[in-house]
């Protein structure tokens, strides 16, 4: 191993644990306190990146508990890429087993939504498809045409009302008491322009968008939606999603998945 490699190996070991491996290169007294500058800078860089990526988790936990969690996570899962905007994909799952969050079972769900919002924020820009395209489709074409979701969209489903909780925590006057309803909900995050919007979805709208994402025809997606939520006002739901900017283009439908 080269001298540079030996040094960098020792330095990395010292960052993770004790200063001892770096002893052959230490010159002078008081190295521990000086070396701490590097440990602190790294911990702070990771914690700030995670606080940026997970603003709702930070709001729910408070700054101090968020920083403690972020630093614990970054010790176990340090960044792999110098682009810290992409750091934290594993944080939601990790939070689910973070002991100080054991009494906050909804925390990992909030983190999943924050991460999806991050994806939508930095996804490709594209003008959304307007209602004219759909208005021009002949009725028979609904059986063979699929609507592709906009590249800056994320679609999530929860067995509880985490999406409503996440939405409540976005407001400046967010509730001090966190309450989670048992009702299952979906969430659509979308950025048709420069701002990320969101809408909480019932089972029908979520099934419709899931089917669109899978490439089903519009007619097939409508059937899935009504199966999931028999009373759904399908036409109004579709019109609302078009107006929200959820679709990027139309294309031939994929073969029907049974």
């Amino acid at each position: 191993m080269s001298e540079l490699s030996r040094f960098q190996e020792a330095f990395s070991d010292a960052l993770a644990g004790e200063l001892a491996p770096l002893a052959p290169w230490i010159d002078g007294e008081g190295a521990e306190a000086r070396f701490a500058v590097h440990r602190n800078t790294i911990a702070r860089g990771c914690a700030e990146a995670l606080a940026d990526q997970f603003p709702t988790v930070r709001r729910a936990l408070g700054a101090a508990r968020m920083a403690a969690g972020a630093i614990a996570f970054s010790r176990q899962h340090p960044p792999a890429s110098p682009s810290l905007m992409t750091y934290g994909a594993g944080f939601p799952d990790w939070l689910a087993s973070f002991p100080p969050a054991a009494d906050l079972p909804w925390l990992a769900g909030l983190a999943r939504i924050d991460w999806a919002r991050r994806d939508v924020l930095f996804a490709a820009d594209r003008p959304p498809l307007g209602p004219e395209t759909f208005a021009a489709l002949a009725p028979a074409a609904y059986a063979t045409t699929a609507a592709a979701l906009h590249p800056a969209t994320a679609l999530l489903w929860f067995d509880d009302a985490t999406p409503s909780l996440w939405r409540a925590l976005q407001a400046d006057d967010a509730p001090a008491e966190i309450e989670l309803a048992a009702r299952p909900e979906g969430l659509l995050l979308l950025r048709p322009g420069l701002e990320v919007a969101h809408r909480v979805l019932g089972p029908g709208a979520h099934a419709f968008l899931s089917a669109c994402r899978a490439g089903l025809s519009l007619a097939g997606a409508g059937e899935r939606a009504l199966l999931a939520e028999p009373g759904l006002p399908l036409s109004q739901t579709f019109t609302d999603l078009i107006a929200a900017g959820a679709f990027a283009c139309v294309r031939p439908a994929a073969a029907l998945v049974p």
Partner: peptide, 25 residues
Amino acid sequence: AWSQRRGVYAPDLLPFPRTGEALDR
């Protein structure tokens, strides 16, 4: 400075001994 090696990135600018080998690298 260095900050990434072997697939791990440390958000800092880390020092190293200024050797001829380091210069070549």
